[in-house]
Amino acid sequence: MHIDLPDKRYYKIGEVANAFGVNASLIRFWENEFDILKPKKNKKGNRLFTPEDIKNLQMIFYLVKEKGYTLEGAKIKLKEKPQEVVETHDIILRLQAIKEELLKIKNQL
């Protein structure tokens, strides 16, 4: 899944939820379930997600929503083989970008 967020230092939970097409409550739930998600909180207690948090959310989303892992299965996969998940997800993102470019070219013909 390609996430369309501007380059920023921090993202609010609403921006993140919209980019992933999910409710903010799911993002908060995943934050409690997955140790790799550690958004900062401002003085008001609002969550501020870093680009690293976004990458981790993408991996969680990929495992849970796209590959059909249970939360426990996703936790185990991220703990036991995190590099494999990162590499697989990166390859998928690159292939999706190539597909988008090819479709643009096709539409121009």
Rank of each mutant, 00 (worst) to 15 (best):
K67M: 15
L37V: 11
R9W: 09
G68Q: 03
D90P: 01
K81V: 08
Q58G: 13
Q108T: 03
K40N: 09
L102A: 09
I92S: 05
A19Q: 04
Y10A: 13
R28N: 07
W30R: 12
R28D: 04
K106H: 15
M1V: 10
V64K: 14
E15L: 10
R47C: 13
A24W: 03
T70Q: 11
G45I: 08
V85H: 09
Q96Y: 02
Y11R: 09
A97E: 15
R28V: 12
F29M: 12
Q58H: 10
G21F: 01
L71G: 02
K106L: 08
F49T: 08
I76M: 00
K40W: 03
K79M: 06
R94S: 06
K38Y: 04
L109W: 00
M59D: 15
A24M: 13
D4A: 13
K99D: 13
M1L: 09
I13H: 00
P51Q: 13
K75H: 10
K75C: 02
A17Y: 13
K38M: 08
K8I: 03
I91C: 04
A74M: 05
L102P: 01
L26Y: 10
V16A: 04
E33F: 10
E52C: 04
E87F: 10
F61V: 00
A74C: 05
Q108I: 07
P82G: 09
Y10V: 08
Q58S: 06
E80K: 14
P82I: 11
M1P: 09
L93G: 07
L95M: 15
L93P: 01
N32P: 02
P51I: 12
E66G: 08
V22T: 07
P51C: 11
N56K: 06
P39E: 14
K75W: 01
L78C: 07
K77V: 01
Q58V: 03
N32D: 03
I36M: 00
E87T: 13
N42S: 06
K38S: 14
E15W: 10
H2M: 10
E87S: 03
P6Y: 04
I105W: 12
D35V: 00
I92M: 08
N56A: 03
E72C: 01
L78W: 05
D7R: 11
M59V: 00
Q83K: 09
I13Q: 09
L102W: 02
E15K: 01
K55W: 07
I76L: 01
N46Y: 15
K38W: 00
I105E: 14
K43V: 11
W30D: 05
I76F: 07
K106S: 05
I13W: 06
I13E: 02
K79T: 15
K44V: 12
N18L: 08
